[in-house]
Amino acid sequence: MPIPEDVTGEEIDKDVRQELQSLPKTLAEDVAKNLVMVARLIDEDPEGAYGYSRVALRLASRVAAVREAAGFAAYANQKYSEALAEFRAARRMTGGVELWPVMADCERGLGRPEKALDMAGAPEVQKLDKAGQVEMRLVAAGARRDMEQLDAAIVTLQSPELASNSVQPWTARLRYAYADALLAAGREGEAREWFAKAVEADRDGSTDASDRLAELDGVEFVDALDEGDDAPQDEAKSQDESAE
C-alpha cells in the first residue's frame, strides 16, 4: 500500500521505535511507516488502517506493537475474533494487562457478555491503572446491558470516578454511559442531568452528549444549507407576485 511522502516513520512513539530496533534498519523503517498510517487512519478510515496493519503484520509479526496495532485495526472494523487473537498474541509477548478491557469488549462483540463479565472480575483488573479500571467498568456495564440487566448496568457504573467533580480523560464517556443506561431504564430526568454533566466534561467532542441532551429537551436543528436552498425560491416567488 502506498505511503505518503510526509510519513517518515519517526512519528511513532519512542517505546514502539525501541521495539523495532530488533529488526534490520530498512525493515524497521517500513514497519514504522505502516504503523504511522494505522494510527493516522484508524478513526476516519478504519478499512484503510486495517490494510496498513496487515502489511505491518506481514513484515514483523513477532513485534508486540505490530500485533497490538493489528488488533486495534481489526477491532475498529468489528473483526472481533481477529482482534482478540492479535491482542492475546501481544499480551503473551509483553506479559502486560493493558489490553485486558478491550479483549473483554471483543468478547462482547462476539456475543459472549458472560465471558466479558468473568474477565471484569479477574485478578488482572487489579493490575490496571485507573484509566484501565474505568474502561473495564464501562465494558462490564455494556455486558450487563447486552444481557438486558439494566439496573445492574447502572449500579456497575456507580463509582468514585463517576461521582468525582474533577474531569479526567475518561469522565465524559463514563458520564455518557451512565446517562444512556438511565435513559434505557426509563429514568429520563436523571438521564438528562447526566447527559448535561457529560457535555461539561466532553471538551474534545468524543461523545454526542450534546445531541442527546438536545433531543431530550425537544430541540430540533435546522440545516443551514437547506435554508439557503429555499431562499432563492422564495425570492423568485416574490418577484413573480410583484410582476402580477
Results as ranks from 00 to 15, higher is better:
residue 99 L to C: 05
residue 113 P to G: 07
residue 141 A to S: 12
residue 71 G to I: 00
residue 122 A to W: 02
residue 71 G to S: 11
residue 65 A to D: 06
residue 127 K to C: 01
residue 91 R to A: 12
residue 92 R to T: 11
residue 83 A to P: 02
residue 143 A to T: 09
residue 97 V to N: 10
residue 133 Q to S: 09
residue 59 L to D: 06
residue 152 A to Q: 13
residue 119 M to D: 05
residue 192 R to W: 07
residue 159 S to D: 10
residue 132 G to E: 05
residue 111 G to S: 12
residue 89 A to H: 08
residue 184 A to S: 14
residue 76 A to I: 09
residue 113 P to T: 10
residue 65 A to V: 06
residue 184 A to G: 04
residue 186 G to P: 07
residue 80 Y to A: 06
residue 79 K to P: 01
residue 166 S to G: 07
residue 122 A to T: 03
residue 99 L to A: 04
residue 130 K to C: 04
residue 131 A to G: 11
residue 54 R to V: 08
residue 146 D to M: 12
residue 165 N to F: 13
residue 128 L to R: 00
residue 168 Q to C: 02
residue 110 L to F: 11
residue 112 R to F: 09
residue 132 G to P: 02
residue 139 V to H: 07
residue 102 V to E: 10
residue 99 L to D: 00
residue 161 E to M: 11
residue 90 A to R: 01
residue 143 A to H: 02
residue 146 D to R: 07
residue 150 L to T: 14
residue 60 A to W: 00
residue 144 R to E: 14
residue 175 R to E: 05
residue 58 R to H: 12
residue 116 A to R: 01
residue 128 L to D: 07
residue 187 R to P: 00
residue 54 R to I: 04
residue 180 D to G: 07
residue 127 K to M: 12
residue 62 R to N: 15
residue 188 E to D: 14
residue 100 W to K: 00
residue 150 L to N: 08
residue 69 A to P: 04
residue 122 A to Y: 03
residue 63 V to K: 05
residue 170 W to F: 15
residue 168 Q to P: 02
residue 173 R to Q: 14
residue 71 G to T: 06
residue 55 V to E: 11
residue 94 T to S: 11
residue 190 E to Y: 10
residue 105 D to A: 07
residue 116 A to D: 06
residue 92 R to I: 05
residue 115 K to Y: 06
residue 149 Q to T: 03
residue 183 L to S: 13
residue 155 V to P: 01
residue 65 A to Y: 04
residue 171 T to D: 03
residue 129 D to E: 12
residue 59 L to A: 08
residue 57 L to T: 05
residue 137 R to C: 08
residue 54 R to Y: 03
residue 85 A to M: 13
residue 181 A to E: 04
residue 85 A to P: 01
residue 63 V to E: 00
residue 129 D to M: 11
residue 150 L to V: 15
residue 144 R to Y: 15
residue 82 E to Y: 06
residue 126 Q to M: 11
residue 68 E to T: 12
residue 167 V to E: 10
residue 95 G to Y: 07
residue 98 E to A: 14
residue 78 Q to S: 15
residue 112 R to H: 15
residue 163 A to H: 14
residue 90 A to E: 00
residue 119 M to T: 04
residue 118 D to I: 11
residue 85 A to C: 03
residue 54 R to P: 03
residue 154 I to E: 02
residue 152 A to R: 10
residue 155 V to K: 14
residue 142 G to Y: 01
residue 180 D to N: 13
residue 165 N to H: 14
residue 176 Y to K: 05
residue 188 E to V: 15
residue 172 A to S: 12
residue 57 L to Q: 09
residue 137 R to L: 13
residue 95 G to R: 08
residue 89 A to F: 01
residue 183 L to F: 14
residue 133 Q to N: 08
residue 114 E to F: 10
residue 136 M to R: 05
residue 118 D to W: 09
residue 132 G to K: 03
residue 154 I to N: 00
residue 142 G to C: 08
residue 125 V to Q: 02
residue 137 R to K: 14
residue 137 R to S: 08
residue 90 A to N: 03
residue 155 V to R: 13
residue 68 E to R: 15
residue 101 P to R: 05
residue 187 R to E: 15
residue 92 R to F: 09
residue 177 A to K: 02
residue 81 S to I: 08
residue 174 L to A: 03
residue 53 S to N: 07
residue 152 A to D: 12
residue 120 A to H: 09
residue 88 R to A: 13
residue 70 A to E: 06
